[in-house]
Amino acid sequence: MPRLSDSEIQELYAFTRKHNVVYFDLQTELVDHLANSIEEQMFLDSQISFNEALNKEYKKFGVFGFLDVVEKKRKAMSLRYWKVVLGFMKTYFKPPKILLVFSFIFALTMIFKAINIEHRYNVYFSLLLIISFGVLTFRFISDKKYNKETLNNSKQWLLKEQIYSFCNYVHIINLIPIMLNLTFVSDLIAAKLMFEELFFAILITTLMMLSYIIIFVVPQKAEKLLEETYPEYKLITKN
């Protein structure tokens, strides 16, 4: 079986980059795939050139090429990311932390109850906005840090990018004030149909815990998570 040279392997890396695969782990997997196919084609047909064989194999990925693979990889990685976040979240629902969480919810409920019903909606809304702005500010800082780091290091890792950009949390949190601005929600509150103080106390506490985990806890554990996710991470970053 013919074997591709080092420079041909580098050419394949360049090929994946040219076709919108920016993440190193995905590049590596696709390079190995392409290389295997090219070697096999060259073995079966000694006349075929490297580029011909490469294009033939690339066509098998369909009209969208690698785009679909990258997009679905992103989805799969988000799932992993949220599993990690939920894992940390669970630790808040075990003693002794759970006592703290419940007392906080109770205290918030009491404070909301003490506020005049006419102003309550504004209070909820302002608190949610403050959380939203807080997350956005930290995202801005975190993005800057990530960009600076990746500038020095040419290899990009999808999970690292998701950790530092808080995955899709920013989109989720920005939707909440918009959803609450819908008139039917404010009508519900005004009509006193729900146990609304408790509902908002739980919502705000949950968002605060989630934000804390996503902004501080997960990035702190980034290196460990990356090593667990990518067996090649240590290999590459140590060299």
Partner: peptide, 20 residues
């Protein structure tokens, strides 16, 4: 297509059914 196999592998990996 190769374009369908890799997403399937990555999803199974994310679900914790496969290790790499």
């Amino acid at each position: 297509t190769e374009g369908a196999l890799y997403p399937a592998l990555h999803k199974l990996e994310a679900e914790g059914l496969l290790d790499v």
